[in-house]
Computed example of a mutant assay.
Amino acid sequence: ARQSGHEIVMQVPLEPFDYPKVNPGRNTLTVAASADENLKSLHWALSRTTNYTGVMNYMGARFSADAAAMEPFMAELGKRGLAY
């Protein structure tokens, strides 16, 4: 896709409301996890493929509403030059 001029956006599993009843999958970033644990899960997700220009949440309403959880996540994306 990138070689044809398309942008690739990777979905990263973030905690939704009603988690774990509603579960986006393994290595979900959660508000209860430490920043280090969430960054480890983020690194795992980012290692699954290459050539993406940004990430978007897969589910993730609870996680993205929590500023303390989002700060290290966004800082890591910023270090990598990735859009959200």
Rank of each mutant, 00 (worst) to 15 (best):
residue 51 N to R: 05
residue 19 Y to K: 13
residue 57 N to H: 01
residue 57 N to I: 03
residue 23 N to I: 02
residue 4 S to Y: 08
residue 7 E to L: 14
residue 58 Y to R: 08
residue 70 M to Y: 00
residue 82 L to Y: 00
residue 67 A to D: 14
residue 55 V to Q: 04
residue 83 A to R: 11
residue 78 G to V: 14
residue 45 A to M: 12
residue 42 L to I: 03
residue 7 E to N: 12
residue 9 V to G: 06
residue 65 A to K: 05
residue 63 F to A: 00
residue 53 T to N: 11
residue 36 D to V: 05
residue 39 L to A: 01
residue 27 N to R: 07
residue 37 E to M: 13
residue 82 L to H: 09
residue 22 V to T: 05
residue 14 L to A: 10
residue 20 P to T: 12
residue 80 R to I: 02
residue 1 A to V: 15
residue 24 P to R: 06
residue 14 L to K: 01
residue 73 F to E: 04
residue 73 F to P: 00
residue 14 L to P: 03
residue 49 T to I: 13
residue 71 E to Q: 15
residue 48 R to T: 12
residue 40 K to M: 09
residue 36 D to N: 15
residue 78 G to W: 09
residue 40 K to S: 07
residue 80 R to G: 02
residue 60 G to V: 00
residue 8 I to M: 09
residue 10 M to Q: 12
residue 79 K to T: 01
residue 6 H to S: 08
residue 51 N to E: 10
residue 41 S to Q: 07
residue 4 S to D: 08
residue 18 D to Y: 12
residue 5 G to I: 01
residue 22 V to H: 10
residue 23 N to M: 07
residue 8 I to T: 08
residue 36 D to S: 13
residue 9 V to E: 05
residue 70 M to P: 00
residue 15 E to K: 02
residue 58 Y to P: 03
residue 60 G to S: 07
residue 51 N to D: 09
residue 13 P to L: 11
